[in-house]
């Protein structure tokens, strides 16, 4: 279906794909070389674990965002949604402690709540976009405000903290690991691989791309456009739930600043990775590389005294733009 729509442009597209493929990887390798050159500890086990583990939240969300954007949508609400889910999780767990005692049952109930709230929140976004026919930008801008306000309200303007004993039980989910690889990294890797397979090898992935490049043609090709779109938002919601499950044990708290600007980081990672913002083409492994690029910039700036901390934002901006220029610049010329 997507092939039909783009057959005339096929030769040009192959050229472009070559550059697309190498752009983000080249940027990532350059950053790793720069980091290793600037600080001897950069490649140490501890630092690599830190960077990968802190990328996991945005990474897990960005995998879902890749599908939403590929299908021509957008979700600005994921950061607020993560904060809201974290708030609900903490409240549910604190509430169950007297019933179940501080142990794994409580933590599992909290995880279940996170997935459920994520699913419902994603479905709300998806239904408003597909059934009510409102632009994704507006719908998710609205729900972004709603989720953010709800978590502020739940926390009474302050911070929700997880019961101390539950926290100790739950803590290994962020700090522990499998064969020395921290759990958030494992989960992020598994989700990225599944995402890549779904995007490449399944009808669902191809339908997303078809809808993103031309939803009318997709509709005439008997694709259930609304259902596929709705599912991309639902999956994203569930992934936000999973990211929150990994996030809560880290600091054991949620407040109105939790997940601030995650949506923009996730979208930036998706675009750096080579997915087209207008939709129609998506690449999950590129997204994973994009997430790593974003975390590495922060990490390298913290590990060195090269520039004034006031300029950190500017350096990030320049590198994000450069990473995209690397993969698209030559096609314009």
């Amino acid at each position: 279906m997507s092939a039909e729509a783009s057959t005339p442009a096929a030769p040009a597209r192959r050229m472009r794909i070559d550059l697309h493929v190498w752009g983000p990887l080249v940027a990532l390798v350059l950053l790793i070389l720069l980091g290793a050159f600037l600080n001897a500890n950069f490649l140490s086990y501890g630092n690599v674990t830190n960077v990968l583990a802190r990328s996991a939240f945005i990474g897990i969300i960005a995998v879902g965002m890749t599908f939403v954007i590929t299908a021509g949508g957008l979700d600005l609400s994921v950061g607020s949604m993560a904060a809201f889910i974290a708030g609900v999780m903490i409240i549910v767990m604190n509430w169950l402690v007297p019933e179940l005692g501080a142990g794994w049952p409580v933590v599992l109930a909290g995880m279940g709540a996170a997935l459920l709230v994520g699913l419902v929140a994603g479905a709300v976004n998806g239904l408003l976009v597909t059934r009510a026919g409102i632009e994704a930008f507006i719908v998710t801008l609205g729900t972004m405000g709603i989720f953010r306000s709800l978590v502020t309200w739940l926390a009474d303007g302050g911070t929700l903290s997880l019961n101390f004993e539950v926290r100790e039980v739950y803590r290994p989910v962020y700090y522990g690991g499998l064969f020395g690889v921290a759990w958030p990294i494992v989960v992020f890797a598994v989700i990225a691989v599944i995402g890549e397979i779904v995007m490449r090898r399944t009808a669902f992935g191809r339908h997303c791309a078809a809808i993103g490049s031309n939803d009318q043609v997709a509709r005439y090709s008997a694709i259930h456009v609304d259902t596929v779109r709705l599912l991309t938002y639902v999956f994203l919601g569930i992934l936000v739930g999973i990211a929150t499950i990994m996030y809560v044990p880290r600091l054991g708290s949620a407040s109105s600043t939790t997940g601030l600007l995650w949506e923009l980081e996730a979208i930036a990672a998706v675009i750096i990775g080579g997915t087209v913002l207008k939709g129609g083409f998506g690449r999950v492994w590129g997204t994973a590389v994009g997430v790593l690029i974003l975390s590495l910039i922060d990490n390298i700036l913290n590990l060195t005294d090269l520039v004034s901390p006031y300029l950190n934002g500017a350096i990030q901006g320049v590198i994000i733009i450069l990473a995209v220029v690397l993969q698209r610049g030559r096609k314009a010329g």
Binding site: F42, N47, S255, T257, N302
Partner: peptide, 16 residues
């Protein structure tokens, strides 16, 4: 003045 940002900055200070 943010808990998450401070966590990451401190992790990096500790590696450095």
């Amino acid at each position: 003045w943010n808990r998450d940002d401070a966590f990451e900055v401190m992790q990096d200070f500790l590696s450095r």
